[in-house]
Each structure stands twice: as structure tokens, then as C-alpha cells.
């Protein structure tokens, strides 16, 4: 690489190699007049040497639920870590597929650059609920934006969809019975499924990142879904194993307004 380009390389990997290649093609055709004029910034110190908290820069907020949130597909299997550092504890592995067979995606909360590497704090579909972890930016795809936010109130049995601060959908819901409560906290819509043989889910279901804290032996890990029902008469109320149930006409209405990736707050 030309001297100037090297100092701005931000790490290993295909992206940077491609950038360097592009810079090289451009620079090779144009270069020749000598080295960079000013001192380039030094290559950043190794992550292990620096105390992690002292070096932590201010993260950039990527998601503000109800205003603008961002999600991204998981581009390749990767570790989510407790801190934006390759030496930090692995919280979980993120795979590229969900148990339902869809492409895996995560809500992107914040971004930070440490030692020339970009890390993104994402919301994780694991127990304990409300877990987040840091993944390398390069392991996520392009950011996709949503302006919606779903708020579930388990005491009032309501679902409310907010878009850019305005409520655009309301419905009554069924939530988990006392022994299988719907978990509280912050989650996101991970996929949208339809075409079931079994009518108990209604015409469609949204998969979420929320997990039942009690049904941990449930197939595929006990994810909480938002779906229709063949028992609309029992709504609203505490009726389910943790899932959020809507009448079928309401889930269809919601479907028209709520894209995958929408952040969810359950109170």
C-alpha cells in the first residue's frame, strides 16, 4: 500500500483488502510524487495492553425505538462479547439462521470504534432476557431502518404500535399465564411466519427474541411469539404459555404496519 493508505487501514479482512485494492489502483495511477507529507497517526496499540474502560470511546446510538431503529442480518457466524474487545468474554454465538429457518437478524443498539475496529452492541435472543453483546461490524450486514416500536402491556393486556412517536395500531391481547409469564423487557421482531397447518397460531406469527424463562426445555428453546388464535373468546387475559396472542383480524392489521426488526417493549 502507499504510505498514506497504510496508516488508514482499519484492520484485517476482505473489506479492508478491497478498499486497499481500490486505493491502490487509484493511487498507483496517480502516485509517484513522494511520501505523505505529514506524520501519519501511529498504528493503535494492541487491545490487550490497554485497560478496556479507560480506552472506551463514546458509542454512537444506532437505535431509538419508535423514532429510528436499525437492525442487520447476521452475515456470518460470530461471537457476541461482553465488551467491544476480542479478548472479552463470549456471551453467545450468533448464527446466520434462526430455529424457524429464516435468516438471523439482530437489533443494532450502538456502535463504537476501538483500536481501529468497529463493534456493534446488539440485542441477543438468549436467556437471561434483555441480554446484549458486542459483535464485529463486519459480521453484520447493511443496516435496515424501521421507525416502528411495539409496546405490550401485560397488565392492561394491550398491544400498541408506535411509528415516529404516533400510535398507529392498538389491540387487546392474551399473555402468559402466571406460571408461564410473558417475559418483560426489551426485544425485537425476528421473523414473520405463515402458512401453518395448526390453527392455534392463526394466519401468521411473528417470532421475537424473547425467551420463556421457565419453558427452557421447549423445542427450539422456548421463544415467545406474537400470533393469531383459534380461541379469540378467551382474549384478553392470561391465557398462554408466554406468547402474545391477538385476534386474527388484529394480527393481520398489525402485519400491514409492523416490519420485521421492529423493537418490542414488554411491560
Amino acid at each position: 500500500m502507499t504510505p498514506g493508505a497504510h496508516a488508514f487501514a482499519t484492520g484485517r479482512g476482505g473489506v479492508i483488502a478491497a478498499l486497499a485494492a481500490l486505493a491502490l489502483i487509484a493511487a498507483a495511477a496517480l502516485a509517484g510524487a513522494g511520501p505523505a507529507r505529514a506524520q501519519q497517526p501511529a498504528v493503535p496499540p494492541q487491545e490487550a495492553a490497554a485497560p478496556p474502560e479507560a480506552a472506551a470511546p463514546q458509542p454512537f446510538v444506532l437505535s431509538r425505538p419508535g423514532k429510528l431503529s436499525r437492525w442487520a442480518f447476521v452475515r456470518r457466524r460470530t461471537a457476541a462479547r461482553s465488551r467491544p474487545s476480542a479478548s472479552a468474554r463470549r456471551v453467545t454465538s450468533l448464527t446466520t439462521r434462526t430455529p424457524e429457518g429464516t435468516d438471523n437478524l439482530v437489533l443494532a443498539l450502538e456502535r463504537v470504534e476501538v483500536g481501529g475496529r468497529l463493534w456493534v452492541r446488539v440485542r441477543l435472543p438468549i436467556l437471561p432476557n434483555n441480554s446484549t453483546g458486542w459483535v464485529r461490524r463486519k459480521d453484520l450486514g447493511v443496516y435496515q431502518s424501521v421507525s416502528t416500536r411495539l409496546v405490550i402491556d401485560t397488565k392492561r393486556f394491550t398491544a400498541r404500535l408506535v411509528r415516529r412517536g404516533r400510535t398507529v395500531f392498538r389491540a387487546r391481547v392474551g399473555v402468559g399465564e402466571g406460571r408461564w409469564p410473558t417475559p418483560k423487557g426489551e426485544f425485537f421482531v425476528r421473523n414473520r411466519l405463515s402458512g401453518f397447518r395448526d390453527p392455534i397460531y392463526g394466519p401468521l406469527a411473528f417470532g421475537t427474541s424473547a425467551r420463556s424463562a421457565v419453558l427452557t426445555d421447549w423445542p427450539a428453546g422456548g421463544f415467545v411469539g406474537i400470533h393469531g388464535t383459534n380461541q379469540p373468546g378467551i382474549l384478553p387475559g392470561r391465557v398462554s404459555h408466554g406468547c402474545i396472542r391477538l385476534r386474527n383480524q388484529d394480527i393481520r392489521r398489525l402485519d400491514r404496519r409492523m416490519p420485521v426488526g421492529t423493537p418490542i417493549t414488554i411491560r
Binding site: 442480518f73 430455529p99 424457524e100 429457518g101 429464516t102 435468516d103 437478524l105 447493511v142 402468559g176 408461564w180 421473523n191 414473520r192 411466519l193 405463515s194 402458512g195 401453518f196 397447518r197 395448526d198 392455534i200 397460531y201 406469527a205 417470532g207 420463556s212 419453558l215 421447549w218 423445542p219 427450539a220 422456548g222 421463544f223 415467545v224 411469539g225 400470533h227 398462554s240 404459555h241 408466554g242 406468547c243 420485521v260 426488526g261
Partner: peptide
Amino acid sequence: IRPARRRRRRQGGSNTGSGTSPRFTG
């Protein structure tokens, strides 16, 4: 530049014909 003809990313699935239901807690 993202390829145009790539396999569409599946954020949703259809279980038509598979006979199974999503494995949500219900």
C-alpha cells in the same frame, strides 16, 4: 454495490405443506 439477483434474504418463512408449526411457546 449489492448484487441485484441474489437469493432474497428470508426474514419470513412459510410452513405451507411442511405440516409443522412454529415452535413458539404458544
